[in-house]
Each structure stands twice: as structure tokens, then as C-alpha cells.
């Protein structure tokens, strides 16, 4: 494996593998969140289990390393690509029809995802998992996930910000998922369009799942106010 990670394909492999790990995490996170729609109590049980589980903490640490690698290599590759493009840009440029908009804007989409993640961490991770680890006290308990969901998603501005964030994640995933598979080399003429469709369907399921929780709690808050 000498020199693998110094090569262009090696660096892309890091992006792909870490990206696929993050995709799997999103699937897990979305499935966990869906529980909150059906039962706040059951959701709190999940929060309780994960908050005090050292395996989950170890998993979070591994995921954080993967996430950092994904971001660092995104910037390294982008800097190299800008250098390779040269200093003079085309005066007249057209995007061919088969080129997805997302594929040409992955870095900016990634930055939006990152900013949204900062907001999400300050809302939930900091007041739940982190609070439990350091014993900090906030408005609600660290394992009372349902109360936190109800608190934040009853605020229209936060709801809109989260929905915009999910749209950015959707665009990032529609390209990122199939692109990772292509980079690893698991693609051919037969699977090309299939993988792209699977990628779009997967991204849509993930983002609709997340959005469903946000919208459900927002609607619940409206109903409570009306009552």
C-alpha cells in the first residue's frame, strides 16, 4: 500500500470510505429519530441507551475522526483541483445537461451541511450526550430527547433552518453516494444508472425521514397552541 494515500485515487478513496460511513450513520440516525414520531417515551429510552453506552461513545469518536478526514481531504482535493484548472477561466461556459448541479457544488453544499451540523450540535449533542458526559444541567434532562425536540421544533425559524439543511444534505447525498461507489470501483455500464437512481432514492428517504420528525413536532406545537 506504499504511497496509496499520496495518490489522487488514494485520497479519493478516503473521501469515499468516510463518506459511506457517514451515510450509514445518517440511516441509523434517521431510523432512531422516526421513533420520536410514534412515542416520545420510546425515543427517550433510545436516548438513554445511547447516552450511557460506551460502545456508542466509541462509535461517535470513530465517526468524528471519519468526518474530520472527509472535511480535510475535501479541502486538500479542492485546492489541488483549483491549481490543476489553471489561473485563466473560460469566458463562455455551459453546463452539459447530464451534469448534475450538485456534482459541481459539493464543497459549498458540504460547507452548508457543516454549518447546519454546528447548529444541530449546539441544540442537541451539547445538551444531551455532552451534558451527560460532563454532568451539566440544562432546561431539560440529557436523556429527555422528546422534550428537546418539542422545544426546538416549535420555533418556526429553527424549523425552516433545519429544512434548508436537509435540502443541502439531499443534494450532497444524491451525488456523494453514487460517486463514492464509483470511486471505489464498484461501477460498470449496467449499474451506472441503477446506482444513480438508488442514490437519489436513498437520499430522498433519509431527508424525508429527518424532515418528517421536524414537521411532526412543529405541527404538534401548533395543535398544542390551538388547544
Amino acid at each position: 500500500m506504499s504511497g496509496l494515500f499520496k495518490s489522487s485515487i488514494g485520497k479519493k478513496l478516503i473521501m469515499s470510505v468516510t463518506g459511506l460511513c457517514l451515510v450509514l450513520f445518517l440511516l441509523f440516525h434517521m431510523s432512531m429519530n422516526l421513533v420520536a414520531i410514534f412515542s416520545g417515551e420510546a425515543y427517550n429510552k433510545v436516548c438513554e441507551f445511547l447516552g450511557t453506552n460506551w460502545y456508542a461513545l466509541a462509535g461517535t469518536a470513530v465517526l468524528a475522526v471519519g468526518f474530520l478526514l472527509h472535511i480535510v481531504y475535501a479541502f486538500i482535493l479542492t485546492i489541488q483541483n483549483r491549481r490543476a484548472r489553471g489561473n485563466v477561466r473560460y469566458a463562455y461556459s455551459v453546463r452539459p445537461k447530464m451534469v448534475e448541479w450538485a456534482s459541481q457544488n459539493m464543497l459549498i453544499l458540504g460547507i452548508i451541511v457543516l454549518v447546519g451540523l454546528g447548529l444541530h450540535f449546539s441544540h442537541f449533542w451539547y445538551k444531551m450526550m455532552f451534558a451527560e458526559l460532563v454532568g451539566a444541567e440544562h432546561q431539560f434532562g440529557p436523556t429527555d430527547g422528546a422534550a428537546w425536540l418539542q422545544f426546538y421544533f416549535s420555533q418556526p425559524v429553527i424549523v425552516v433552518l433545519y429544512l434548508v439543511w436537509f435540502v443541502a444534505i439531499w443534494f450532497h447525498l444524491t451525488h456523494g453516494f453514487w460517486s463514492a461507489i464509483q470511486t471505489i470501483g464498484w461501477n460498470n455500464l449496467v449499474w451506472m444508472s441503477r446506482i444513480q437512481k438508488i442514490s437519489t432514492i436513498f437520499a430522498t428517504i433519509i431527508c424525508l425521514g429527518f424532515a418528517a420528525v421536524v414537521i411532526t413536532f412543529f405541527v404538534k406545537s401548533l395543535c398544542c397552541c390551538a388547544a
Binding site: 489522487s8 485515487i9 485520497k11 479519493k12 478513496l13 482535493l77 489541488q80 483541483n81 491549481r83 490543476a84 484548472r85 453546463r95 452539459p96 445537461k97 447530464m98 451534469v99 448534475e100 456534482s103 459541481q104 459539493m106 451525488h175 453514487w178 460517486s179 464509483q182 470511486t183 471505489i184 470501483g185 464498484w186 461501477n187 460498470n188 455500464l189 451506472m192
Partner: peptide, 29 residues
Amino acid sequence: GFGNCTNTRACEAECPKGISITNIARMNR
């Protein structure tokens, strides 16, 4: 000093011989 492919497929769309990017997957393999 050539750049890194991000699978935009612009190359495939503009290639006068219609070379498919599935060749890039094969190269990576």
C-alpha cells in the same frame, strides 16, 4: 499536476468519442 475526478460526468458529456466514466471505475479498481 492534473486534478482529481469528482464524477461530474462533464468529460463523458463532452468526449467526442463518448468514452464512459465507467472506465474510471475500472482504472480505480
